[in-house]
């Protein structure tokens, strides 16, 4: 840089120019192509869910006489055995799937943080009890437990479905967050922060959480994917409310009417592709967040080579 003098004002001025060069992680995310691709796909589904009444007005469950029509110019994705538009059902189905997926995922992650991080940071008996709980829940197989619970709740509504999925989805994340907290808690920089006078909440918020953010977000995205999968599975098994429209109930009815035997591939593929797309989108976002939260990783691999090539060119 430029030559420095001993006038502190000069340093301050230089600092101001440096500040503008200092990139916020948000900008880094926007510039990250992987993450933006995933985010765009995900936002597309969110937009579909919100705008369903305007994009596909009408009742998606409305029964017509046009039974099992293959895709054509009128029914872009064909119709079901009850004459409903598959396109309309797919669009409206996004709503229930996303609602359950996002809320159950967020709720499960919150439980993981409270039980995992809280237990590990408190230590002692609290940690022992928290670990015991997560261990018990880890060995209970999730899907059968969900089936039992939803059967018990009898054609569970959306709220019950969210609770059941969150209830079975937290223990793995809690274990991961616990071990990360344990490893961070004893690190020198945490000790240093404490010795410089940072309080407990300050240490958690300013030292631990930023270091755990990528793990928490990865966990959140993973749990959302799990929740979407669980919701679809439960609906597919007919354990939810089969009269609502969701990707799971679409598959349930398709299987009930033996869509595959009837050659009605257009009834099965759209919800399947959508589930896959959302899963892929979340995975892409996850990867980019990993890169951003770990500055060293961002400079490794392809992006580094690309930057190097640009520099040489």
């Amino acid at each position: 840089m430029t030559e420095t003098t001993d006038i502190p004002g000069n340093d301050l001025e230089l600092l101001r120019t440096m500040r503008s060069r200092n990139n916020q992680s948000w900008h880094a995310f926007i510039r990250n192509r992987t993450g933006m691709t995933g985010m765009l796909i995900f936002l597309l589904f969110v937009a579909l869910a919100i705008l369903a009444p305007w994009i596909a007005p009408g009742n998606p469950s409305a029964i017509t006489m046009n039974i099992l029509i293959p895709p054509n110019s009128h029914y872009l994705l064909g119709t079901t055995a009850e004459g409903q538009s598959v396109l309309m059902q797919t669009i409206w189905g996004t709503r229930s799937t996303l609602l359950v997926g996002l809320s159950a995922g967020a709720l499960a992650t919150l439980l993981s943080i409270i039980i995992g991080v809280g237990g590990a940071y408190s230590g002692g008996l609290v940690d022992d009890v928290a670990t015991l709980f997560s261990n018990i829940f880890i060995v209970i197989p999730g899907i059968p437990l969900m089936i039992v619970l939803t059967t018990y709740l009898h054609h569970a509504g959306v709220g019950a479905m969210i609770l059941v999925i969150a209830f079975t989805g937290w223990p793995f994340g809690a274990r991961v967050l616990r071990s990360q907290t344990l490893s961070l808690r004893s690190r020198d920089f945490v000790r240093a922060a404490r010795l410089s006078g940072e309080g407990t909440w300050g240490v958690v918020r300013r030292e631990l959480f930023p270091n755990m953010l990528s793990l928490i977000i990865a966990n959140l995205l993973g749990t959302i994917m799990y929740a979407i999968g669980a919701e679809v599975s439960l609906q597919f098994l007919g354990l939810g409310n089969i009269n609502t429209v969701s990707w799971g109930t679409m598959l349930y009815w398709a299987s009930n009417y033996q869509a595959l035997l009837n050659g009605a591939w257009w009834w099965i593929i759209p919800p399947g592709v959508c589930i896959g797309l959302i899963g892929g989108a979340l995975a892409l976002v996850n990867r980019s967040i990993d890169e951003i939260s770990n500055p060293q990783l961002a400079m490794s691999g392809r992006s580094k080579k690309r930057r190097l090539r640009r520099k040489l060119a």
Binding site: R187, R191, A192, A193, L195, G197, P210, N211
Partner: peptide, 23 residues
């Protein structure tokens, strides 16, 4: 305690571990 921390400080052995890599 804060007052004590203000007057007695510490430097750690490992400079790779004593700084938070995100700050």
């Amino acid at each position: 305690i804060l007052d004590y921390r203000r007057h007695v400080q510490m430097i750690f052995q490992d400079p790779y571990g004593s700084l938070n890599s995100l700050h």
